[in-house]
């Protein structure tokens, strides 16, 4: 009696295992393409992927299954380094792809020169999201360090997006005070107004929007627009600061993996497709700023004009920015070590 029950249980588990293992299996004329991306591109690639699949099918007769993986940019890059076999990576910052290139040698160090516009088919910037009516009267960076203003931004050590936020703030501080010391002072004051340090950009948005914490969220422009649209229309408004940073989320084929899977051609075509007018249109609709001049002109009204600093021009490139600001014991850490007192 008990015996039957236990064997029944075992048989059921075995059956379940079998049921789950069946299915899958590729037929000829089909190809899998794994795109490892960061969090905010979910909606973007969901819109773009079918278009590319149709075009590729028409061109080659091959059916392409685009598989997506999303997560924090740093975490995703680490997964690729540790063996997640991405054919293409589309991450939040060039530093994460640089690291993949340096640690795995699966793509050349000069990967960023292989595609136009620093390999970033879309770009964005950092803006503020405030509550309806802008009750704290926030218009520019200097409003964020006023006493009593609570700022929500994620931890730059765990979030790629937050590094852009930090650098934009630093750039403002340096521009107004015209010294690194002034910049540091500004950034210290800014983080003193931060009550919650989420580990990722989407977590920060949820904290601000759903939990009602804070007066202003520093965010990617595309994330701010999406949050405004998805989570309660009319409850939030976007404020464009006087100066911000040119945030370029780059894309690259991971040659080592693509070669192994025999997907080099389709992977390259996939990234090229991102620069086509059709894809650029979807990019603009997903609140990223398009590169294509015609599309950009069409959506010009959507995206405010902001003076944009660049990583290479104003911060000496990612390697330097990383070492100076975000490494262990670097400026960001010392800000919090001081804050403890």
């Amino acid at each position: 009696m008990k015996r039957t029950k236990i064997s029944a249980a075992l048989a059921t588990s075995a059956l379940l295992a079998l049921a789950a293992c069946s299915g899958g299996g590729k037929t000829k004329g089909e190809v899998d393409l794994l795109n490892v991306s960061y969090d905010p591109t979910r909606e973007l690639y969901r819109a773009i992927d079918p278009g590319f699949a149709t075009e590729w099918k028409a061109k080659t007769g091959e059916t392409v299954n685009i598989k997506m993986s999303h997560g924090g940019s740093g975490k995703q890059s680490r997964a690729v380094i540790d063996g997640l076999e991405a054919d293409v990576v589309t991450l939040a910052l060039a530093y994460d792809i640089d690291t993949i290139a340096a640690k795995t040698k699966k793509l050349p160090a000069d990967w960023q020169a292989r595609l136009p516009d620093n390999s970033a088919p879309y770009y964005s910037t950092i803006v503020f999201l405030v509550r309806k009516g802008n009750p704290k009267n926030i218009h520019d960076w200097n409003d964020l360090i006023r006493p009593g203003v609570q700022v929500i931004t994620p931890n730059p050590k765990t979030s790629g997006g937050a590094r852009w936020n930090y650098l934009a703030a630093w750039g403002y501080g340096r521009k107004t005070g015209s010294s690194d010391a002034a910049a540091r002072d500004y950034v210290t004051k800014l983080y003193n107004n931060v009550p919650v340090l989420d580990s990722g950009a989407r977590g920060a948005t949820t904290t601000f929007v759903e939990r009602g914490i804070g007066d202003v969220l520093i965010a990617w422009e595309n994330e701010a627009m999406l949050a405004q649209q998805e989570m309660g229309k009319g409850q939030f408004q976007i404020v464009a600061p006087s100066v911000s940073v040119l945030a370029e989320p780059p894309v690259a084929v991971v040659d080592g993996n693509a070669k192994k899977h025999g997907t080099q051609a389709v992977a390259k075509a996939y990234l090229d497709y991102l620069y086509t007018p059709a894809a650029q249109e979807l990019i603009a609709k997903a609140h990223y700023r398009p590169r294509n001049a015609a599309v950009a002109a069409k959506y010009a009204a959507t995206f405010p004009q902001i003076k944009l600093l660049t990583i290479d021009g104003d911060f000496g490139g990612w390697a330097k920015a990383q070492a100076q600001h975000f490494a262990d014991g670097a400026i960001f850490d010392t800000i919090f070590a001081q804050r403890r007192r």
């Binding site: 931890n155 765990t158 919650v196 340090l197 580990s199 070590a337 804050r339």
Partner: peptide, 17 residues
């Protein structure tokens, strides 16, 4: 809340590393 020195737990610090 994940503030360093205040509400940051050790496993989060591992993730940060």
């Amino acid at each position: 809340g994940n503030m360093p020195f205040v509400s940051e737990v050790s496993p989060l610090l591992i993730v940060t590393q």
